[in-house]
Design a protein around this nucleic acid. Structure first.
Lengths: 229, 229
DNA sequence: GTCTATAGCGTGATAGAC
DNA sequence: GTCTATCACGCTATAGAC
């Protein structure tokens, strides 16, 4: 197969644009140690960029985080909504419920997201940030996903018409918590199972998570709703 | 009602022993902002103690954390095992399953733990730490609870004999993740529900968590186990 | 057992030369 | 757009007076 060749004398090392290099390094590091746990110097070192350039491109550490959110939030929500829309076409309620939950989970785990190889990496950042309680981070998080989440809750409610909406909400909340915890602390599963179960197996994790959540939601529908509740 | 009075001239402000004051302050602060997010200076300031005293009593920040673990791990595990033992006496499988899961959850939420008013506060610390990925913290966490957790998994397996042990493990893992997330990010429930559901309502959280987890576990028992899996 | 003082280093952010 | 130099501050940890 013939490929387009770059003449040797013209070739320049295709160094990433500085801005992108910084973003990538920051994202990787923060997905491992959160916001508080990583310094700007470390990010600069890792991306092979001068510390001053970080400030030049992003201003503050907080704004750098906001930029990371920027490049992931839209694609991930879009992917979720696509999958949700597909799931909505399933008529069987039980099947549809599974598809909806799966539509919520898959983009969070998926590593084929269009940017920088990583839904999972970005979700890890969100997971850690949600626990760090950093004020700077909190308001960036707040509005990025709540809207989409509400659409999912509505779709789920349509599958379990007898269920109390508050209880559905609790289960969606649990789903997110379980998802976050699995993504960051998968190795605990390895330890507890003596190596029999791999926490890093995202496909297995997705299936277990979907199945468990769907079961918990369906149970709500089967139980008679309590009066006025 | 007559009470024992302390003569005014004898009265000395019953200032807590320095060590305890430091522990309390550290625990409160870390339960809000984790390990990385809190400085020793802040702890010293908050406990009204000199910075040097912190080092005198605990040596390093890491050892201070270990001391916090020390005073909570044993009581909490003991309480869990008591409740687990009580639950074990229930003969009906479904009822027993609920009681077992509840025995796991309640001590984590309970604020009537014998020390410093707080299972919940301590569980928050564990939650945040589990995400921070701090190497210092990680090895303190590792062995404190895994043993007890395995006993719970065994007890649960006894309630759902047809379920695959790996899947049970996943659900216990999800339970812990959901628990942690709820304890730290309860306000998200408030936001998503428009204030209709209170994330800070630990009794409600406990019940929803127990019910959801039990349902997810029972579903495992109902489904035919796949061959060789 | 408690305190002050300080060492030695890393932090986020800024100013200004090139 | 990139770099160096530097500010002002916070950090963990230590040494030694009281």
């Amino acid at each position: 197969m013939q490929t387009t060749e770059i003449p040797v004398h013209t070739y320049k090392k295709p160094r990433q644009p500085t801005r992108e290099a910084i973003l990538d390094a920051a994202e990787l590091l923060m997905s491992q140690r959160g916001f508080n746990g990583v310094s700007l110097r470390e990010i600069a070192r890792e991306s092979d960029v001068n510390l001053g350039s970080v400030t030049y491109h992003f201003g503050t550490k907080e704004k750098l985080l906001a930029a990371i959110y920027d490049r992931h939030t839209k694609p991930m929500n879009q992917r979720r909504l696509e999958l949700l829309s597909e799931a909505g076409r399933i008529t069987d309620r039980k099947e549809r419920l599974h598809a909806i939950v799966r539509a919520f989970v898959i983009p969070a785990f998926s590593s084929q997201s269009d940017v920088a190889g990583g839904g999972a990496r970005f979700t890890r950042i969100r997971a850690i940030l949600s626990m760090e309680g950093n004020e700077a981070a909190r308001h960036i998080i707040a509005a990025s996903f709540d809207e989409t989440t509400n659409l999912f809750v509505d779709a789920i409610a349509g599958c379990v018409p007898n269920a109390d909406r508050g209880s559905i909400l609790w289960r969606c909340h649990f789903l997110l918590g379980a998802l976050y915890y699995t993504l960051v602390n998968g190795d605990r599963i390895d330890r507890l199972s003596g190596g029999m179960v791999k926490g890093s197996d995202h496909d297995r994790a997705t299936e277990e998570l979907v199945r468990a959540t769907a079961a918990a939601l369906q149970e709500l529908d089967l139980t008679k709703r309590k009066a006025g509740f």
